[in-house]
């Protein structure tokens, strides 16, 4: 894939230290990473390994305290100000006083899209996440999985080719999660976006990603980067193939290695 050499996210020796009352906490330390255009990169690791923090640094919701990072060739702040990414949080974070379509319209209103274009984009993204016909509902009228899909639609509504997802399916049951994973892959194929995806589920990471970043805590750092050998077209059954299990095994080994120093 020669045309995919552009680095959407590029981190060099990135570090982030929180000053707390109990002394400094090294949330991230010496993180080197390249995310190429069109990649689906998963960040996996135990809680406290800095995977969410790293995503928040990309999004300019936290600032790195050392090292360098560029997003779309800019500083994270520049990237945020030019609205170059959509962010999906752990919770749907839908505004309860807005209907689903009004929630999707929120970024479009803020970014001054015309009424006609708003309407067109709402319809298109609702369709993309299989929520057509639910636009007039309020969030409480939808199930948790549907709410999270609506929040993905909201992140897709404007023209950002980077999608940052922070454990978006963490609170959902496994059956719904499988279904949404499958849909997410299709959506990724259709939209050709670059996706950074935080998870603590090994099967989810292996099933979805072209690249898996294994992280370990205290200090948060990258212990392994695995490039997936799975084909781009992945039915759910692929999770029983030896190839899939081999990658999952390597991820598990990486996670275990990161933990060993604690014993």
């Amino acid at each position: 894939m020669a045309e995919n050499n552009f680095s959407v996210v590029s981190a060099r020796k990135l570090g982030l230290t929180f000053e707390t009352n109990d002394g400094p906490v090294h949330a991230l330390s010496d993180v080197d990473l390249e995310v190429k255009r069109g990649d689906f990169v998963s960040f996996i690791g135990p809680s406290g390994c800095g995977k969410t923090t790293f995503l928040r640094v990309i999004a300019d919701l936290e600032s790195a305290t050392s090292g360098e990072i560029t997003v779309n060739g800019m500083t994270p702040e520049g990237a945020r100000k030019s609205r170059s990414y959509g962010y999906v949080f752990q919770a749907p974070a839908l505004y309860p006083w807005r209907t689903i379509e009004k929630n999707i319209a929120l970024p479009l209103e803020i970014m001054n899209y015309s009424t006609a274009e708003r309407k067109e984009r709402i319809e298109r993204t609702l369709d993309l996440v299989n929520l057509a016909g639910f636009g007039k509902k309020y969030p409480w009228q939808l199930s948790g999985g549907m709410q999270q899909r609506a929040s993905i639609a909201r992140a897709l509504a404007f023209d950002a080719d980077l999608l940052l997802m922070d454990e978006p399916f963490g609170a959902l049951d496994e059956i719904v999660r499988d279904h949404l994973n499958e849909q997410l892959l299709k959506l990724w194929a259709r939209t050709e976006k670059t996706i950074c995806f935080v998870t603590h589920s090994i099967p989810e990471a292996v099933y979805l990603s072209t690249k898996i970043v294994v992280m370990s805590p205290r200090p948060g750092r990258v212990t392994d980067v695995i490039t997936s050998t799975l084909p781009k077209d992945r039915p759910l059954e692929i999770r029983e193939t030896p190839e899939f299990l081999a990658i999952a095994h390597r991820v598990r080994e990486g996670l275990r290695a990161g933990h060993s120093y604690e014993e």
Partner: peptide
């Protein structure tokens, strides 16, 4: 508003007035 709802506004680079 919860932190997550405010963060969302920040990712859109929304103004204080918005």
């Amino acid at each position: 508003p919860e932190l997550i709802q405010l963060d969302l506004m920040r990712t859109y680079n929304a103004s204080v007035a918005q």
